[in-house]
Design a protein around this nucleic acid. Structure first.
Lengths: 200, 200
DNA sequence: GTCTATAACACGATAGAC
DNA sequence: GTCTATCGTGTTATAGAC
């Protein structure tokens, strides 16, 4: 149930976002959406063509939010390592999993070019953004090789996505943190100590 | 459809394993299982108490197979690094995702202590097995610190699980390989070159 | 815009014949 | 052991009143 300060359309989208996160596309019925949004059948089919159309609106919104949250950490102050660490350690609803990444396991989402596009684009943007930061770190002399930015960026994204799996499996958010710790430990071996002439 | 050389019971389990892998628990109906197995309603409910019971048999079997496949790589010849690499690079149906890991995103599986137990146990065993190998590598002088075996083991498992997400998202198995490459690149910085007195 | 009614089918399971 | 019949409920809509 969402506040009546939101339009029916927005409540439907928000309810769908929550259910998609919790139960996936296959596990989410129009009826469940309507009940969560406090809307009738008629309202839903007035605002949206059907379940796929509503899901598309929800997925796009979720992808946009994820991107903004990631950028808040990645675009911050500090060295390349610091920004990657900030991203890895940012606050997360770990036990709920990744609202975007989990859609990759949904057969109906993957079967629809429309629904899968925002998922692919978001993860690809994230990987590219991380690669750029790592590349910059190498160029600025903050990081030392051998360190392929594209490959390590993929590893960073994969560790996060897999961290959710470990956390949900064990029922503990600590499992996510441990995987991140391991990655940062490996990455920190490539840190160049800050020397005179730069940031201190 | 499965060979008639298998018992009806086994065909039901195999069909369930395939559908669970492809569509998850929530997305798999008894009817779909029966059709894939070439069995009627009566057969299914004769051999199994219901969908959860059948799913449990299927999940246990899948977990067992995954464990055996992982052990084949992890228990092989070579240094700690080599065995971890063998595990990471072992042949996989990358675009299908992990048949065990994907269950962590299934709300009905996670809500059932019985169904989630094999998932948790399998991933936990894998993490522990990897940690043991890394620890051994440190003790034997094949690997050099700082390298927390428990944390890095979690990172290895997470990279694999997340690699599946990246591969399915992009529709390309190469994305999995890239994430693995990045991890091995980071880990290889801790390799101690084989010297006189050991294995050569 | 939102509501209720209805439809055609799928879901997950039970009953009982064979 | 396997089959068909049946059940009550849920799914994904469409129709049409208000």
């Amino acid at each position: 149930m969402y506040t009546r300060l939101m339009s029916t359309r927005d409540r439907l989208v928000e309810a769908t976002r929550e259910l998609l996160w919790e139960r996936g596309y296959v596990g989410t019925s129009p009826k469940a959406i309507q009940q969560a949004a406090g809307a009738g059948q008629g309202s839903m089919y007035h605002h949206f063509a059907g379940k796929p159309d509503l899901a598309l609106a929800a997925i796009r919104r979720t992808a946009q939010e994820l991107r903004a949250a990631a950028e808040a950490a990645l675009g911050g102050e500090g060295s390349a390592y610091d920004r990657v660490e900030a991203y890895l350690r940012r606050e997360r609803d770990v036990l709920r999993g990744c609202p975007v990444g989990r859609l990759t396991m949904d057969p109906d989402v993957m079967a629809s070019p429309q629904l899968r596009a925002p998922v692919d684009e978001t993860l690809d943007w994230l990987r590219g953004r991380l690669a750029g930061i790592l590349q910059e770190g190498l160029e600025r002399g903050e990081l030392t090789g051998p360190l392929d930015p594209e490959a390590v960026a993929a590893t960073v994204v994969a560790t996060v996505q897999g961290g959710y799996v470990l956390a949900r499996s064990s029922g503990s958010a600590a499992a996510f943190a441990t995987a991140v710790d391991g990655l940062l430990l490996l990455l920190s071996a490539h840190k160049v100590p800050a020397e005179q002439g730069r940031s201190e």
